[in-house]
Simulated scan of single mutants.
Amino acid sequence: MTDPDLERWRLVLGTPASAMGGLNADAARRDAALDWLYGRDGDLDRRDVRRTGGDGPSTLTTVDWLNDINQLFPQATVERLQRDAVERYEITDVVTDPEVLRTVEPNPALLRAVLQTKHLMNPEVLKLARRIVEAVVRNLLATMQTEVRAAFSGARARRPSRWKQARDFDVTRTLRANLGHYRPDEKRLYIETPHFFSRTRKHVEQWQVILLVDQSGSMVDSVIHSAVTAACLWGLPGVRTHLIAFDTEVVDLTGEVDDPVELLMKVQLGGGTDIAKAVRYGAALVEQPRRTIVAIISDFYEGGSVATLIRSVRELVEQGSKVLCLAALDSSANPAYDRDTGQRLADVGAAVGAMTPGELAAFVAEQVSR
């Protein structure tokens, strides 16, 4: 078979499409790798459409499968296959088998898998899994620190300066001051008095940024990005950051904010949700209400009292704090949340929506530099 489109359909459909033609050696290996994963889908049995590979090896171990997919598919497809293996089919040895962890290439899908399954790992396996966490977090930090620095770099004030440096040349003021020296016959403006400015930071008063992060299983991406965002905000002038994780209990992780890897290794995903309890804890941390941003990162499916949650948020707003109710905080910012609760929170003055980490940093920078 030489037609790439026919080959793709043959790989999608498996043995039921064998009449379309055979597969070459590499395509047969792809077929076997896909069958190893998707052949276990129970929906195929119910529809009497059994997907089986025809020409590849009959049995693959998890290590063999990971090696094969890395050789046979582009990186984006590899990450999708790994994510389906862990999240859809619960093949936990993808991130709990020591041999796999020694060889697998770290990526965001595997980071999510490690965080969701680390409670199954013995100390030796957990040590190997930490390599994945460190590698992915390092890449996220590099990207997000750039975004945060860009957001905070604009807080500058310009003042006249006697120090003459080319980079501080004030073009506008110089032109205005020397317009009387323009010579129409030569069409030239002669500069007798150049002007320069100094670059000084605006004075910024201390702001508190309190991140309340829902650590239920569905919020894993937001948990990851909240940890890295808090690390990027940590130590910035004018900003004091708190990071609080919650399910039905509240855990203050502020002491770990400067080490997002250690922080993520301590997060316990899953369990119920008591958002109101977390908001009350955050409210108790507020020192200057009008210089405080409280960001609640959750899907807002409240397991506790919705009425208490609404009342707690209203009290924060009324005292002058800025309350953000974020249904997502990750690179895609695709919100999935209880819209009824979200509307009730908006009705009492909270800003409800979703943000990327860069957008949150820009919001904080805008408030701090006012």
Results as ranks from 00 to 15, higher is better:
residue 167 R to L: 04
residue 45 D to T: 10
residue 333 A to G: 00
residue 312 S to L: 05
residue 35 D to A: 15
residue 15 T to M: 10
residue 299 D to Y: 07
residue 279 V to M: 01
residue 219 M to L: 07
residue 285 L to D: 08
residue 345 L to G: 05
residue 76 A to Y: 12
residue 274 D to P: 01
residue 130 R to C: 00
residue 303 G to W: 09
residue 213 V to G: 03
residue 156 R to V: 14
residue 300 F to M: 02
residue 136 V to P: 02
residue 200 T to K: 10
residue 253 L to Q: 11
residue 188 R to L: 15
residue 223 V to E: 04
residue 89 Y to N: 05
residue 156 R to W: 14
residue 291 R to N: 04
residue 331 S to V: 05
residue 198 S to E: 12
residue 42 G to R: 14
residue 299 D to W: 07
residue 311 R to W: 12
residue 366 E to D: 14
residue 96 T to Q: 01
residue 364 V to M: 03
residue 150 A to H: 07
residue 4 P to E: 09
residue 41 D to N: 15
residue 12 V to M: 11
residue 59 T to C: 08
residue 191 I to K: 07
residue 39 G to Y: 09
residue 340 D to E: 12
residue 82 Q to D: 03
residue 163 W to Y: 13
residue 53 G to R: 05
residue 186 E to I: 07
residue 250 V to K: 01
residue 252 D to P: 05
residue 318 E to I: 00
residue 209 V to N: 03
residue 63 V to G: 07
residue 147 E to R: 15
residue 135 A to F: 01
residue 102 R to A: 03
residue 62 T to R: 10
residue 58 S to L: 14
residue 259 D to K: 13
residue 11 L to A: 09
residue 171 V to M: 08
residue 175 L to Y: 05
residue 188 R to Q: 14
residue 230 A to G: 02
residue 321 S to V: 04
residue 357 P to Y: 08
residue 32 A to G: 10
residue 302 E to Y: 11
residue 189 L to M: 08
residue 171 V to Y: 08
residue 346 A to N: 11
residue 74 P to D: 14
residue 339 R to A: 15
residue 324 L to A: 03
residue 1 M to E: 12
residue 180 G to Q: 15
residue 9 W to C: 13
residue 367 Q to N: 06
residue 158 R to S: 09
residue 175 L to C: 04
residue 263 L to R: 06
residue 9 W to H: 11
residue 90 E to A: 13
residue 61 T to W: 06
residue 150 A to K: 10
residue 86 V to K: 02
residue 342 G to A: 11
residue 248 T to D: 02
residue 132 I to C: 00
residue 161 S to Y: 05
residue 179 L to V: 12
residue 288 Q to W: 11
residue 174 T to N: 06
residue 5 D to K: 15
residue 126 L to Q: 08
residue 193 T to C: 02
residue 159 R to W: 08
residue 243 L to V: 06
residue 199 R to D: 09
residue 285 L to Q: 11
residue 79 E to W: 15
residue 205 E to M: 06
residue 161 S to H: 07
residue 201 R to T: 03
residue 361 A to E: 01
residue 42 G to M: 11
residue 312 S to Y: 13
residue 103 T to E: 01
residue 155 A to F: 03
residue 47 R to M: 12
residue 221 D to G: 10
residue 8 R to V: 06
residue 152 F to Q: 03
residue 11 L to P: 08
residue 90 E to I: 12
